[in-house]
């Protein structure tokens, strides 16, 4: 999977905001907030990534078991897809 380019991830006051750009604004329900892990994954999705690659990266960065990371990432990827945030 790979993210759409029509978003800007920026940190404001410690909050990670995913802001739609251009024509994406009308297709997105406002500004999206991401937690630390989600923002980390969003950065990684600048390039094509598999769930396995993301799991390895997240388990290496955060204190989480590989199984839990994979489960959370799968759920997050589904949400990204449902909300039209992936290419």
């Amino acid at each position: 999977m790979i993210r759409k380019e029509s978003f800007l991830l920026q940190t404001v006051g410690g909050e990670h905001l995913l802001v739609p750009l251009g024509s994406q604004v009308m297709d997105t329900n406002g500004i999206i907030t991401l937690n630390e892990t989600a923002a980390f994954i969003w950065d990684l999705l600048e390039e094509e990534r598999t769930i396995e690659e993301l799991t390895t990266a997240v388990a290496g960065r955060f204190e989480v078991s590989r199984g839990q990371a994979e489960s959370d990432i799968t759920l997050f990827a589904e949400k990204l897809d449902q909300n039209g945030l992936l290419q």
């Binding site: 006051g13 909050e15 905001l17 500004i31």
Partner: peptide
């Protein structure tokens, strides 16, 4: 807090 204010102001 700044992070709560951020989203609302944006």
């Amino acid at each position: 807090s700044p992070n709560n204010a951020a989203t609302m102001l944006a």
